[in-house]
C-alpha cells in the first residue's frame, strides 16, 4: 500500500475517533431535547463542571477556598489527602444528580410552556452560572485529569502499519492515541446501555412516551417533572463521561466547555431528535473535519477546523432542513 493511502486511512481513523468524542457531547443534547424540547446550551459547561468537580475531589481541594480565603483572610486550599478515583466519580455523579434536581426545581419548573427560544436563553444563563460557579469552587487554573485510562500513541499499531507500506517507501507507521480508542469503546458501551435502558426499563419507556407526546404521557400518569429530573441526571452522567474523556485528552480548562459548540453542527447534521443521528453526525463531522484540514487546509492557510464543521452542516441543511435523521418538519397554519 502506498504511504499516501495509508495517510488517508490514518486521517479517517483519527477523524472517526474524534467524531465519537463529539457524539458523546451531542448525546447529552439529544437526550434533553427529546424529553423536554429544551435545547440545552449548558451541556458543554456541565461537562466542564463535572470534570472540575471530579479533579477537585480526587486531589482533595476545598471547594470555594479562594472565596473563603478572600472573605475570612484564611489560607486554606486542600483538606489533605485525595480520594480514590472510583469514589470521586461516584460523588461527582451524585453532585450532577443534585444539580439536575436543582435545575428542575429552580429554573425549569417556572418556564414550562414558554417559547423554545426563552428556554434556550435560560440554558445559556445556566451555562454562565455554572461556568462562574465551577471556577469559583475549584479555581480557574488548568488542571490535569488522570483517572488511569491508557494514553499516548500505540507502538504496536505503529509497527503493524509500518509493515503494510510498500517496501522502500519512507513510512513510519500510523499514530493512534490509546485514549481515543478507549473513548470509542466507552462511547459504544454508553450508547448500548442508554439504548437498552430506554427500550427495556419502565423508566425508559416513560422517557420515550414523554418524548413522543408530553400531554398524552401526562394523561397516563407519568410525572413530567420526575422525568425531567431523570433526563437531566442522565445528561449530567453523559456530561461526566464526556468531561472525563475530553479532560484526560486535553486537560481541564475553560475551553472544555467550548466542545458544546462543536457538538452543534453534529446535532444539526444528525437531527436534534435522533440518538443514532448524533452518532453518525459526529462521525461525519469528525472525518470531514480531519480530511478538510489535511487536504483543503494547506490551500487556504490552515486552521479551518474551527468553521469547517459548520459549513458542512450548513451545506447539508440546505438539502435536508431537518437534519439527516430528524423528524420531518410539518408546518400548518
Amino acid at each position: 500500500m502506498s504511504p499516501a493511502f495509508l495517510n488517508f486511512v490514518e486521517i479517517v481513523l483519527n477523524g472517526l475517533m474524534t467524531g465519537v468524542m463529539y457524539s458523546l457531547v451531542a448525546l447529552g443534547f439529544v437526550l434533553i431535547f427529546k424529553a423536554s424540547g429544551i435545547f440545552n446550551f449548558a451541556q458543554g459547561v456541565m461537562a466542564l463542571f463535572a470534570a472540575l468537580t471530579l479533579v477537585g475531589l480526587q486531589t482533595g481541594q476545598v471547594p470555594f477556598s479562594h472565596l473563603i480565603n478572600a472573605i475570612f483572610g484564611t489560607e486554606i486550599h486542600h483538606w489533605g489527602g485525595g480520594m480514590h478515583t472510583v469514589f470521586a466519580i461516584l460523588i461527582t455523579m451524585a453532585v450532577m444528580i443534585i444539580l439536575a434536581f436543582l435545575i428542575e426545581k429552580i429554573v425549569l419548573k417556572h418556564l414550562v410552556n414558554q417559547e423554545p427560544i426563552i428556554l434556550f436563553m435560560a440554558t445559556i444563563g445556566l451555562a454562565y452560572f455554572l461556568e462562574g460557579a465551577g471556577d469559583l469552587m475549584w479555581g480557574a487554573d488548568v488542571k490535569v485529569l488522570n483517572v488511569g485510562l491508557p494514553s499516548g500513541g500505540s507502538f504496536w499499531w505503529e509497527d503493524v502499519t509500518r509493515e503494510w507500506a510498500s517496501t522502500g517507501s519512507e513510512y513510519w507507521g500510523m499514530y493512534i492515541d490509546k485514549l481515543d480508542v478507549t473513548a470509542t469503546v466507552i462511547a459504544l458501551i454508553l450508547v448500548t446501555v442508554l439504548t437498552a435502558f430506554s427500550q427495556y426499563t419502565a423508566t425508559g419507556r416513560a422517557l420515550r412516551a414523554v418524548a413522543d407526546d408530553h400531554q398524552a404521557a401526562m394523561s397516563v400518569g407519568i410525572s413530567l417533572r420526575t422525568i425531567w429530573v431523570i433526563v437531566w441526571s442522565i445528561a449530567g452522567f453523559v456530561a461526566l463521561v464526556a468531561g472525563i474523556m475530553w479532560g484526560s485528552k486535553s486537560g481541564i480548562q475553560f475551553s472544555l466547555s467550548l466542545i458544546a459548540l462543536k457538538a452543534l453542527p453534529v446535532l444539526i447534521l444528525g437531527g436534534f431528535t435522533s440518538i443514532p443521528g448524533a452518532i453518525i453526525g459526529g462521525l461525519i463531522i469528525g472525518v470531514g473535519e480531519k480530511l478538510a484540514e489535511a487536504y483543503v487546509g494547506p490551500l487556504v492557510g490552515g486552521a479551518i477546523e474551527n468553521w469547517f464543521a459548520y459549513m458542512l452542516a450548513l451545506a447539508f441543511l440546505l438539502f435536508r432542513p431537518q437534519g439527516l435523521f430528524g423528524d420531518k418538519i410539518i408546518e400548518r397554519i
Binding site: I71, H110, A122, E131
Partner: peptide, 29 residues
C-alpha cells in the same frame, strides 16, 4: 469595596450575569 482579588470578582461576575439572565427570564420573559 470588599477588596477581593480581581480573578475572583470576575468569576463571581460571570455567575451573577448567568443567574440574572435566568431570574429575568423567569420573572419577566
Amino acid at each position: 469595596y470588599l477588596g477581593w482579588p480581581t480573578d475572583l470578582a470576575a468569576h463571581f461576575q460571570i455567575m451573577m450575569v448567568g443567574a440574572l439572565i435566568v431570574i429575568f427570564l423567569i420573572a419577566e420573559p
